[in-house]
Design a protein around this nucleic acid. Structure first.
Lengths: 146, 146, 146, 146
DNA sequence: GTGGTCTAGACCACA
DNA sequence: GTGGTCTAGACCACC
């Protein structure tokens, strides 16, 4: 990935989710999909703020959350880079416990709304497989860029 | 289920999650697990508020969310009853789209934190299976009440 | 500890250390000394901001750091309360590793500046013992308040 | 130690700690461990900058901090040399006061995070003893150089 | 140029 | 009343 050529992120200003959360979510998804891999550079807080027409502090907060999650690492000189991704390190136990509880609630919502068990598993598998496939494609793309 | 004999719900007053959200989550999970089935009566807003020692408005908000989600239906005379559950009606397309997006974000978080694809699917399947198994048990229990 | 009767915290506005860091440090020290024990209420962000003549966001950031460290827990209704202290939970391995490195640097500084090994250990022991003694006194005080 | 034969220093360019701080920390630790003793020559600012591929100003700032701490002394002709170390001079009172405060904060952090008093003292003693042992080894090595 | 800190003041969510 | 979010704009540290 060349300098200044950052991954595209889309923000929805009318969404109920706070902007900083949306930025965080998009970055996490990009990491899962291999669009961002450990070492990749993120846009600077000022750059993103200008792009989205939002405040620097809002982007800074998003990066702060990602830093606390161990997803990115920040350095005054070189800005923020991805520090964690699939295969970097095994998941933390405390994280798994918390995450599982949130997953249970989300899956319960689908069950209650009438999705069949099969449909729910199918959907989950499809999402995970999609991430996996895109990671493979990304790797190839990085080996032989266009 | 007889009147006054309501499903047990646990609220954690010091949790970071808002109380109304906790109530909503517990109800949704109870529906998914078959502890609450369509037609079941919910405790009244005032009753729940007293039980938990919280504000009536907080419970009202929780019920309001559930109503907007179509999970419960409220009648001024007969109070609130479960209106939706597994098997009641096929899931709405709009819901599926929104839910899938949230699921993708949650699964992406796990991938980024180092959980393997297999572990993620295994966890999801276990949760869905657990709900399914508890629904079967619940049905049997209702066929032969104490 | 009665409501509104919060632990005294002193801030030095001319210190090189950021204000939010000073607040965080004072709270951590109060926890170590037993002046604040799990369950104790912290002053609200607005209250502290007024007391110190600083911005709400600055206090919020201090509390945010403490929350990320697991020292406090925040709840919309009841504000922030102490969630961790000596004896609450064993230390995390990752924390110990990071902390040890910082300790090594700080002790090296003393050695380089001419403090004898004995003086360094004496100072460390005195500090830890002081915290320990104050914790005991605090416990007694809370059992039989004035 | 002969000129040009300098102590090895490792810098982590992606660390959150500023580079000048890392240089300063490594030098202080080297002094505490006896790898650098009063009179030892430090690499020139330009030399270090080239070695690490960093800016000259960054190294200059690190040396500036060390100079203010009295650890090194710089002479335009002969460059920078170590001016202070264990045994050179008793510690300054003002330094001890400031250092003790920082130590108290760091130890408080460990107490709050659940380390036992014994573990904290054990860790501190181990670090000081390690420095002490390495100083002895260093002295011997200097008595009978290769 | 990068990110970090802080202010003053606004609006919203929660209870 | 509590805390959370966001803005506009400033200053500082690092490199």
């Amino acid at each position: 990935m060349k300098g200044g050529d950052h991954v595209q992120i889309q923000i929805d200003p009318v969404s109920a989710a706070p902007i900083y959360q949306q930025i965080r979510d998009r970055v996490v998804e990009a990491v899962a999909a291999g669009d961002l891999t450990p070492g990749d550079q993120l846009a600077s807080v000022r750059q993103l703020a200008v792009d989205f027409g939002i405040n620097v502090a809002t982007v800074a907060k998003a990066y702060d959350v990602l830093r606390n999650e161990g997803i990115i690492r920040t350095n005054h000189k070189s800005g923020s880079v991805i520090a964690r991704g699939p295969g970097t390190a095994p998941a933390d136990d405390a994280f798994v416990a918390d995450w599982s509880a949130r997953l249970a609630t989300l899956l319960a919502e689908a069950v209650a709304q009438g999705l069949t068990d099969a449909a729910i598993i199918e959907r989950s598998t499809a999402i995970v497989d999609d991430f996996s496939a895109r990671r493979s494609t990304s790797d190839t793309a990085k080996d032989s860029p266009s």
